[in-house]
């Protein structure tokens, strides 16, 4: 299945902005972030097709995943 992964803010550093990935059926959010060296605790916001998703959310063909690091400064 094909999933579009969008990275935001510092997640783009050394990685990419948007990439279409070919993934095995049943891949979860964790299965996407682990190969990208993003730890679950580094993930502040995770949207699948615009709605909140969790690490164990299983992805479907055609999904778009948007991943954001925590931005907390003032």
């Amino acid at each position: 299945m094909r999933v579009t992964v969008k990275l935001f803010a510092t997640f783009r550093d050394g990685r990419f902005k948007v990439e279409e990935m070919e993934l095995p059926e049943g891949t979860s959010v964790l299965g996407v972030i682990q190969p990208l060296n993003i730890k679950p605790e580094e993930l502040a916001i995770c949207l699948r097709n615009g709605k909140d998703a969790k690490e164990d959310t299983v992805l479907n063909d055609g999904d778009t995943l948007a991943l954001f690091p925590p931005v907390g400064g003032g």
Binding site: A9, T10, E41, L43, I45, P69, P70, V71, G72, G73
Partner: peptide, 14 residues
């Protein structure tokens, strides 16, 4: 919803 998850913000390194 936006700030309830994740560790310390990336401002600590950036």
């Amino acid at each position: 919803r936006l700030y309830g998850h994740g560790e310390k913000g990336v401002e600590s390194t950036w």
